[in-house]
Amino acid sequence: MDWTLLQNVSRSMYLSLRVLPEPVRPGMGLGYLLCRAADTIADTRVVPNAERRQVLEEFRAAFDGQWVPALSPTAALAEHQASDAERELLSRLGECLALWAARPEAERQLLKEVVHSVIDGMRLDLDRFPGDDQSGLKALPSAAELDRYCGLIGGGPGIFWTKLLRLHVPALKTAPAALEERGLRLGKGLQITNILRDVPKDLRLGRCYLPEPELKAAGLKPEDLLDPKSAARLQPVMKTWLRWGLEHLDEGRGYVVAMPSLRLRAAAAWPLLLSVRTLSLVARSERLLEPGAGVKVSRQEVYGLLAATPWTLSSEFRFNARYDQARGDLAAIL
C-alpha cells in the first residue's frame, strides 16, 4: 500500500485511516483508493458523460474478473486530471486492482461490495446531472432520491468499514448486528455533511442535491440558488437536511462507544465530531450560497481535536460530554 498516494488523495480521511491498527489498515486504505478512483472517473468533466459512464462500467466489471490490465480509457482520463494526486491514482489503478486480487477472499468480497455501492452512486450522479455547468442545473426529484444517494456514497462505505472491522477485530466479531446499521447511518450523515457544505460549488457544476419539491415549497427553483440573495428563502430546506444529518450522525455516538480500542474510537470519532462542527458552521453561515465562501473547520480546531484524543476518548463519559457539546451547538440553531 502506497501511503503517500493515499495521503495525497484523501486529505482529512487519511488521519482516520492511518490511526487504524495494522490488521485492518491495508484493507481500509485500499477501499478508500478504489472508491476515490470511481469518484474521480465520474468527475472528469472534460470527458463526455457517456464516456465516463463507460469507464465506470469497465471499472465495475474488473471486480468480476473482466479487467484489461492497461485499461486505456482510465489512462486517458488520468491525463485530464488537474490534481497530480488524482492523475497518479488513475494511472496506477491497475496496481490497486492487483492489490485487491491479492487480498483474502472475504476482504475481496467486501471491497467489491463497497466499490459497487459507490459506482452506483456515481451512476446516479451522471444520470441525474448530465450537464457539467450551471447552464444545465437540475435538482434531485425527491427526498427519497437524496436518501438513496447518501446511502450509496456514504452508507455503503460505513457498512464496509464495520464488516472489515468484524473480520479483523476479535472483540467485534460478536457485536450486535445493529453495529452495521449504525455504520450505515453514520456514513449517510457524513455524506449529507459534504453535500450541505458544498451547495454553492455543486450548483455551478449543474448539480442541486436538494430535492426539487422542497425547493418548490419554499418558492424556489434550482436556478434561483445561483443568486446568493436566495439564501434566506432556502433556510427551511437547509434546516430540514441539517436535522436529517444530525439524526444520522447521532448514531455515530453509539458506534464510537462500541469500538474496543482507543485507535478504533479515534478513527470513527474524528470524522463524526468534525461533521457535527461542519454542520454547525453551515447552519450559521451568512454566505451560504456565495461561490468560494464555503465553510471549513479551522486547522486550529482540527489540531485541538487530535491533541485532546487520549483524554476525550479514554472515557465514555468524556466522549459523550464532548459530543453533547458539539451537538448542542448545532441543535440550538435548528
Rank of each mutant, 00 (worst) to 15 (best):
T4C: 09
L5I: 05
L6A: 01
R11H: 15
R11T: 03
M13T: 14
S16N: 09
V19Q: 09
R25M: 04
P26Y: 03
M28S: 00
L30R: 10
G31M: 09
L33Q: 00
L33M: 06
L34P: 00
A37T: 02
D39E: 12
T40E: 02
D43H: 06
P48I: 15
E57F: 09
E57S: 15
F59P: 00
R60D: 12
R60M: 05
W67D: 09
P69E: 06
A76P: 00
L77K: 00
L77Y: 01
D84E: 11
L93C: 07
L97W: 01
L99V: 10
A101W: 02
R103F: 05
E105C: 02
L110F: 04
L111V: 03
E113M: 14
H116I: 09
S117M: 06
V118L: 08
G121T: 10
G121W: 09
G121R: 09
L124M: 08
D125S: 08
D125A: 10
F129Q: 08
S135Y: 10
S135D: 13
G136Y: 02
L137R: 02
A139I: 04
S142W: 03
E145S: 13
Y149H: 06
Y149S: 03
G151K: 01
G151I: 01
I153C: 04
G156Y: 02
I159A: 09
T162R: 12
L164K: 00
K173F: 07
E180P: 05
E180H: 04
R182C: 12
G183W: 04
R185H: 14
K188L: 08
I195W: 05
D198H: 10
K201A: 13
R204F: 15
L205V: 07
R207E: 04
L210D: 00
L215D: 03
L220K: 08
P222R: 14
P222H: 12
D224L: 09
L225A: 09
A231M: 03
A231N: 04
L234W: 08
K239Q: 15
T240N: 07
G245T: 05
E247K: 12
L249A: 04
L249C: 03
D250I: 10
E251R: 13
R253P: 00
Y255F: 15
L262C: 05
L262K: 15
L274A: 08
S275Y: 12
S275D: 11
V282Y: 02
V282I: 05
L289S: 08
P291M: 04
A293M: 13
A293E: 12
V302T: 09
Y303K: 15
L305R: 14
L305V: 01
A307D: 09
A308G: 08
P310F: 04
P310A: 02
W311K: 10
W311C: 01
S315M: 03
R318Q: 06
N320E: 13
R322W: 06
R322E: 06
A326H: 12
A326Q: 12
L330S: 02
A331L: 10
L334M: 11
